[in-house]
Structures are given as structure tokens and as C-alpha cells.
Write a protein that binds this DNA or RNA. Sequence first.
DNA 1: AAGGCGGGGAT
DNA 2: ATCCCAGCCTT
Length: 373
Amino acid sequence: MTPEQFQQAVLNWFDRHGRKDLPWQQDINPYRVWVSEIMLQQTQVAAVIPYFERFMASFPALEHLAAAPLDDVLAHWSGLGYYARARNLHKCAQKVVSDHCGEFPRDIEALAGLPGIGRSTAGAIASISMGLKGPILDGNVKRVLARLHAVDGWPGQAAVAKKLWQLAETYTPQSCDKNGRGNHYTQAMMDLGATLCTRTRPRCDECPLADSCIARTQGNPQDYPGRKPRKEKPVRTTTMLLLEHDGEIFLQQRPPSGIWGGLWCPPQLEEDDGGEASAQEWLAVRDLSAQQVQGLPQLRHTFTHFHLDIAPVWVQLAKIPAQVAESGGGWYKLRQLNRPRAAQELGLPAPIAKLAKQLLALQAPLLAESPAP
DNA sequence: AAGGCGGGGAT
DNA sequence: ATCCCAGCCTT
């Protein structure tokens, strides 16, 4: 698909289906387009509309904004988020007044040098309001182009961004004057991404680019653009000793601060997943002997910032050793720990409650075989 | 290259 | 809950 064919398809679609009634699409000038583009950074159209209307009512032109107190500008931004945008907006207005005689420079590079205006926003302002060639690469265009060419990878990666920018440059009309319709092209690309080429459930049947879209052909448009790689959560490991005697297990209260502060847990070997072997060593050091030591299936509990892999070991004791009895903590009946609400009442971390349940299931049949006297 | 900024909507 | 959004700036 040549750039000319691409542009024609996009513009034809825009003429029939594009949005043309948004507030910033009326009375188009660089000031209004600039304000709208800044507001639309990381913010959806529906949220922006009332803010844009109020903003224009109070600051109808650049000189009003430049002359306004920053606090006044921030008040108009309240609730939109990303408040650095408002500070930059104000700073930019003053800079345009002081350095550019109150007119935005008609040049992509110069625009992109102003506070709060990056490469994409500069392209949007230039193409929509100035008749210049202004490639843009916002989230919508990234999605359309990544799917059209099946560009793998996360756009946050420099190489992926470079490829997408190259495509954006290629397809953007050379001439953005009346004949080139660069303003409509830019509006159309954003509209396409916002209304058809959506992140989930793209409406490919209605897309003017469907026949050329590689992701569509592959049948996996939803896989583009690649997701930001989730930061790998580190894995911590621990061995938990389920010291059990006669249907009771031993729990200690954890220190008031830190993970599970103040909650009750079995004795724990930190940064250890030796499981059964570690448990044997722990017992030997204390000169304890157990009837049976049995590793149980590993359990993973995920916190906000790490995984905790728990290797539980079931240690059956013939009698309660003095060393353990006096070590601070208490013995709890598994049946009581497994009562409804018991975990909340006593203060048991979720994975510990789960372990208590598992252990009861293992141990109950044994008690049934040899009922207590 | 990665993180921060922020509120809201979709899933 | 998690991810993402008409991004840009700083480190």
C-alpha cells in the first residue's frame, strides 16, 4: 500500500465516519489546537471536553493565558491530572509571548522545543492548524501502525518507537495545505484509533485499512502493540515449620512492623526453600526428634512487589518439647483454626489459613484411625 | 532506558 | 485488581 493509497483510504473514511464536531475542531487556530492537544495527553476525549470549554471561556486566546496567574490556570486544570501539563502550558504561553511575538513558531522543531510540547504534539499542532507536514505518534496512531505492519514489541522500546515513527513519517501527507488535507489526515488517524482500531475488540470489519493490515490477516490484532513488560517480581523463599502435636500446631506472633505485622505464623526459615532437609537441620540443632517429617507442596503467595514461595514442612512431634513450649507463641487446634472466621479473628495471613486447612485434611484421617482417649 | 505524573474508564 | 489512555520531562 503506497502512502497515497493509504492517505486516500483514511481520508475517505474520515469524510464518512470521522468526528468533526469536537469543540477543538471548531474555530481552529494554533492556540485552541495546542490547548486541546495538551489536555488530551493521556486523557480521554470525554473527560477533556468540559475542561476545554471552561478553559476557552476564561482564556480565549494566548495573551489571556500568558497574563493569567498560574494559580488561576491550575484551578482550571483541577481534576484533569498530570498538573505539570498546566504549569508547562502557562510557561509555554509566556514563552511564546516573550520569544515569538505571541505567535507559535511555524516549525516542528521549534514547537517541540517549547515547554510541554513533544514531537507528537508538535506534529499535531503543525498539521491541524498550520498546514505543515506534521507526523504524529500518539497511542492511537501507534496502535493503527503497529497492527498494519505487525510491528512487534513494546513502543516504549527505542527500536520499536523508531520503527513506528518511521512509518508515521512515511504515511503522513507531504503537503498539508488545502489540497493535501493534512489536518484531516491527522484527525482521521486519531479517530481511527479511538473508534475502530481500539485496544480490545477492534472493529476490523469497518476499517478502511483491513485489507492491508497484517495483524488482521494474522488474526491477532489484539496482540499489537506489544504490552509493556511487567516488571519481574522477585521471588523470596521460605520454609515454614508446621510443628504439630495431637491436632495442634505452633504459631508465633510476628513483629508489629513488616510483612504480616502482628499476625500469627508458624516458625519460619527466611530465604530458605530447603523444605524437609532444612526442617531436619532445624530440629537437629535443637536436639529435637520428630515422629515424622514430611514436606508439603510448595505454596506461592504474591505481594505487591514480590512473590513468596513457601515450602511447608509437616513435623509431627510425639510430645511438646520444652524448648518450643517456652519460645513465645502458642499451640492452636487445627480444627479451631479452620472454623469460619477464625483466621480473621486470630489474625492469620491468608496463606497460613490455607496451610492450616491442608494440614487438617492430612491429619484428620490419622486422628480418626486412633481416636483420642 | 526507566520512572514519575493522575484521574478515569474498560475489562 | 490491572491495564491503558490524543505524552512529556527528568534522571
